[in-house]
Design a protein around this nucleic acid. Sequence first.
DNA 1: GACTAATTCAAAT
DNA 2: ATTTGAATTAGTC
Length: 236
Amino acid sequence: MPRPSRESYGDQKPPYSYISLTAMAIWNSPEKMLPLSEIYKFITDRFPYYRKNTQRWQNSLRHNLSFNDCFIKIPRRPDRPGKGAYWALHPAAFDMFENGSLLRRRKRFKLLKSDKESLDNELAALANINRFFFAPPESAEYSAPPPKQREPSPVSKIDPVTCIRPKRSFTIESLISPDKPQEAQSVQIMAHPHPWTMASYCDLAVAPVMMQPCYGNYIPPCKDLIGLSQLALRSI
DNA sequence: GACTAATTCAAAT
DNA sequence: ATTTGAATTAGTC
């Protein structure tokens, strides 16, 4: 994204909140998700103001990441080595800046407790699936992780391990049969279309039950929407 | 000026 | 690196 006027703020503080800046960075990325280090990079690349006092504003930015439901943490796939998880925007947070202000939103984006819990469960399921499908041979041999250790949330109806609705009859354990741990190793990884579906993590043939979108009721990132980054960069 | 989002400091995980 | 809390600052209506 070449931007001639990229640094037109000079050393002055840009009129964007950390939430706006972070959303820009994420939105601007091809996969609509970035690790923390890339978010830092996006900001410091474009706004010289943030090349100083990094300790302070990066701590604040991290605080925002954890505190605001509009940011969700996508577990890093082990085939993508690196530090930290990926951060994405919650699909329902697109109209966060509806009022046009990138400084202060009218209202804080907050998920309902039940939505928050099911989201957390699905993300936990992603992490578990990562372990199943990407575990090194030696650790894959021992056995599937003991189901009993994972206590499902009393609220959510989604199985935290399989990430499927209870009506489904078979589980990950049944797919990864104890006598054929090697098959699980040969799973093909897809192109990672976007973080919202299990499809980006699992092979169709091996895990058909998981193809249903985890976020089926939400709107996935859409190119038709006016990207916050474009919006912001245009105004620079 | 009230209301509350955003920022900061910083402890705990 | 991530989460959380408390205190403070500061946009908006």
